[in-house]
Nucleic acid binder design. Structure first.
Lengths: 194, 194
DNA sequence: ATAAAGATAGAACAAATGGGTCGGAAATTC
DNA sequence: GAATTTCCGACCCATTTGTTCTATCTTTAT
């Protein structure tokens, strides 16, 4: 019983790798079970369907993302560094997750509503983080913004803009360049001139 | 007539992207044609089969690899730098090609003999390059090896060893670390002590 | 303008693939 | 050794997929 839950996690870990590489559609139960060295039908002892596995995997990835981001922030102290770290890790992680976008937008595929729930929850959390970041930076006299809330929203908007190429599966390109551009833009617009 | 050959190339370019992402099996004709904004059956006007496209794509990639490697060598002058550049680019490129390994080893899939032909040809060319590199370095008094031929073979063996994780699809990991380790090993074992 | 040749796509098809079910065999626990 | 948990091979059937065929555009040549 406890064991069962344990094995479910092993399945999630394995499936996570395959899903992230091939996306929902192109990942087969056969593949997942083969990677686990189990029979295909055995998987159905732990999960009811492919979609249920996918849901668990997405949830898992979301938690992974959260911890990676929070540790990235804790690694440094100054608000600009925190922001820089956060954006950098966020970009890297989202690039890795880009194959999941397929599932979200694959027409003629049941619209996984749970993804949107997770997403909107993440949006809220991210906004809180950014708001705090800006607020603290402001208090320390490093930033100089009128309204932390709206500034945070603006930053988040830019970050979302960086995801668009992932949606459009136009991967490729000068990812670091764009990162620097965005960072300097944000900082120059945000740092107190002296 | 000339046009036809031109469009074949466009197909190769497009298919190349999809194949390199998903491998032979998981790439469908439907996908390729959709990416080209053509009907699925239209592709068969230019190629006889999916495998024929794949063959053309592999050939194309092989040529790409060759030119990337030779330019990487020409970019610098000193033999150690050339060697470093060569190994670095080789590793990056092979990592990108890793999805093609699937096709090579997919049992119950006709063994694409042409891949092995291309591979063995590349092996010969690589050996020649390495041999020359070692030889020149030796002449300039930077390297100090007895037999360029056998040293080149040894180096090539190590490079092939670096491919093993790709075969085993155990991707991941400290790729740069291993690169540095291999480089220092090769250099320290090869450079004339002074 | 019209015939011929060059391209294209839609429909149809046979083969395979893939998600899921089921009965029962192993393995484990009690 | 019975009961329960875990596993799997065989099967089902809906969908996918590579490929063919025919009909229809489009361009070129006459």
């Amino acid at each position: 019983m406890v064991d069962k839950e344990e094995y479910r996690e092993r399945i999630i870990l394995t499936a996570s790798k395959i899903f992230s590489h091939y996306g929902f559609r192109k990942t087969t139960m056969e593949e997942i079970s083969r990677a686990l060295k189990k029979g295909k039908s055995s998987i159905y002892y732990y999960f009811q369907s492919k979609e249920e596995i996918f849901e668990a995997v997405v949830l898992y990835e979301a938690n992974q993302l959260r911890t990676r981001l929070t540790t990235a922030i804790k690694e440094v102290d100054s608000p600009p560094d925190k922001l820089r770290n956060y954006i950098y890790v966020r970009m890297k992680e989202f690039a890795k997750l880009s194959n999941y976008y397929n599932a979200v937008f694959d027409k003629n595929l049941d619209h996984f509503e749970f993804i949107e729930r997770i997403r909107s929850r993440y949006d809220r959390e991210e906004l809180a983080i950014l708001r705090l970041l800006v607020y603290v930076g402001n208090n320390r006299g490093i930033f100089a913004v009128e309204d932390s809330e709206y500034t945070a929203m603006a930053i988040q908007t830019m970050l979302k803009g960086m995801e668009v190429p992932l949606f459009w599966r136009k991967r490729e390109m000068d990812i670091n360049h764009r990162l620097e551009a965005i960072l300097t833009l944000i900082f120059n617009g945000i740092l107190k001139k002296q």
